[in-house]
Design a protein around this nucleic acid. Sequence first.
DNA 1: ATGATAAAAGACAAAAATATCTTTTATTGA
DNA 2: TCAATAAAAGATATTTTTGTCTTTTATCAT
Lengths: 145, 145
Amino acid sequence: MAIFSKTCEYAMRAVFYVAQRSHEGYKVGIKEIAGHINSPEPFLAKILQQLSRDGVILSTKGPNGGFYFDAASLNRPLADVVTAVDGDDIFTGCGLGLTYCSESNPCPLHEEFKKVRNQLTHMLHTTTIGKFNLGLIKGKFTLNK
Amino acid sequence: MAIFSKTCEYAMRAVFYVAQRSHEGYKVGIKEIAGHINSPEPFLAKILQQLSRDGVILSTKGPNGGFYFDAASLNRPLADVVTAVDGDDIFTGCGLGLTYCSESNPCPLHEEFKKVRNQLTHMLHTTTIGKFNLGLIKGKFTLNK
DNA sequence: ATGATAAAAGACAAAAATATCTTTTATTGA
DNA sequence: TCAATAAAAGATATTTTTGTCTTTTATCAT
């Protein structure tokens, strides 16, 4: 059991790949994306549809179509991707799964857990979709396996 | 999608409850635990069986039996509970789900994600199973809903 | 020893997450 | 306009997680 769901992992990998290709001036088809991030193609299609509906990623149909980001979208935080596919439980939920738990009525683990949650939130809000474009283009990173 | 699985949330709540009762000198039956942490009884039974097999929690069958902790076990870290039910993916896994990712061959998100993972690891290792006993006994916290 | 109690174990069921397949819609270029 | 392309949408399948039920085993008190 990892921190993010499989859906979310695929979404983030896909977004980083599309961002890189957008930076290089290309739109990308689902097949190319799935191949480069090592994800099941039809499942990834569903995920990107969701991101597209939420306005996180852009897409056009037809020849030379595909998924892409404009300059503004490249500066959006990775948190938007996570929220679009998994909701915001990961940013707001109680560590013990208790619905009553809040700042004013905390569960036992609240103070301890809050630090972790806040760090995760901070990380996902300061990491932009386009942050790794240069590293990816230079081949410093890969996104498959 | 929360950070911990439902299984893990129930496990942590149950462990805190049993720890409190052990501190008070009682063993606890599955029915009492399930009632106090608001979890499905037979499902919780499976989870506690797993913890018992792993030696994280102690139990005895028969009349006046139930689950409990000895003094040494009360000082074990909450991390042991998480590992027993969910494995150690949450402590070691890549944020993007990439198997190649490591300190020497990092994925794009590695440095950023590492901080979050380390904070979570630190929190779960410094929080002991018995840490909230006094707060729970005083009614400062509850573990249901 | 025996009956009552309570966890352990095993088989089974429902729900959610993950994955696939087919049809429809939009866009492009000839 | 028409054929080709590629995403969107809808229906379906599989796997994992979550949840239930029944039988077995161990322990205690009498």
